Simulated assay, not measured.
Amino acid sequence: MTTIEQLGPDDWQGFRDIRLRALADAPDAFGVTLEESQQKSEQDWRRRLSVSGPILVVRDGATRLAMGAGWHPPDEPDRMMVWGMWTAPEARGQGCARSLLAWLLDHARRRDVTTVELHVTEGNDSARRLYVQCGFEATGEWEPLREGSDLKIELMRRVLSDVQITAVPPNSGVAELALRAYLHDVASRYHRRPATAAELEAALAEHPSHDLVAPHGVFLVATADAGVVCGCVALARVTPEIGEVRRLHVDHRFRRQGLGRRLMLEVEQRALGMGLSQLRLDTRNDLVESQRLYESLGYRESPPHSGGPYSDRWYAKQL
């Protein structure tokens, strides 16, 4: 099970180790060299971990598999630079870099950042593809990788959309739009074809949402500019201490932008406000992206607590 950990000054040795490994593995991806970094002292590494912005690692137990970081320029509070992105060879293709970017983008939104930028080295096509998939665009602004290098790096930029997450009555018009989009997606994936109108109506009847109101629950909807519905998630109290996360959905136009993570983090805050100490949820074996999201947030597989055609894997998390 992989998790994302934010490092602090006392983690300097672990940071040093993964940073040196990254520089040795991909010397053309960074603006500093392995030799320069090997000369740094403990104080240097601690100072780096005290800069303005999070430094993250992906862990699998005690093993650090990937890293990435964000930096907030002191004189530009609405801008963040992503730096230090690297994944160990044995962990590539497992979504580590995408999870790190999603975490950093969510962090940027919570800091009211409007522009996130990063650099990519010419010829690093796999990294460029990932960044494009995550919403970054090439700017055409090039500069040398570092002094004395023949390689160049291009600035890529993503402007964060103004997506708002709010609680709405489950019988409201916006909630119905979100629920229909969610159930249409779930039913279509299950049947491996577009769901019919009859199947959608049956799903709506089978999965009522009228109880998702305080103090029994909450229904959250994410909307973008002009009120476009781009996602939803629900929380239902099942015991005084346990809540169940339901209806997590992100419209295909807004995926790979960290919105699913934002919805999950928001629902966890709502759960704490309701006095809940544990959350549980279910998903399907074929929804690998959802499983990776839940596991990166600290959810662990648990015994079944629900049934039905759309549930064959269950998770729980202590808050």
Rank of each mutant, 00 (worst) to 15 (best):
T3N: 00
E5V: 15
G8V: 10
W12A: 06
W12S: 04
Q13S: 14
G14Q: 15
R16A: 14
R16F: 03
D17I: 09
D17H: 12
A24M: 04
P27S: 09
G31A: 11
L34D: 06
E35Q: 15
Q38G: 06
R48S: 06
L49K: 05
G53N: 08
I55S: 12
R64K: 11
G68D: 11
A69H: 09
G70P: 09
H72A: 00
M81K: 03
M85T: 07
A88F: 12
E90Y: 08
G93D: 14
Q94D: 12
R98A: 15
R98M: 14
L105A: 05
R110A: 13
R110M: 10
D112R: 15
D112S: 15
V116N: 03
N124M: 10
D125T: 07
R129I: 14
Y131S: 08
V132F: 00
V132L: 00
W142K: 00
R146T: 10
E154A: 05
L155I: 04
R158M: 04
V159C: 09
D162Y: 10
D162Q: 15
Q164F: 06
I165A: 03
A167G: 06
P170Q: 09
D185G: 03
S188V: 13
S188N: 04
A198D: 14
L200V: 13
P208F: 01
P208C: 08
H210N: 06
V213W: 01
P215N: 09
F219M: 00
F219A: 02
T223E: 08
T223F: 01
A224C: 04
D225S: 10
A226W: 13
V228Q: 13
I242V: 15
R247G: 03
D251I: 12
H252A: 13
R255E: 06
G258D: 06
E266R: 14
Q269N: 07
L279N: 02
N285P: 00
Y294A: 03
Y294T: 02
S296R: 08
R300Y: 02
E301Y: 03
G308L: 10
Y310F: 15
W314Y: 15
Q318I: 12
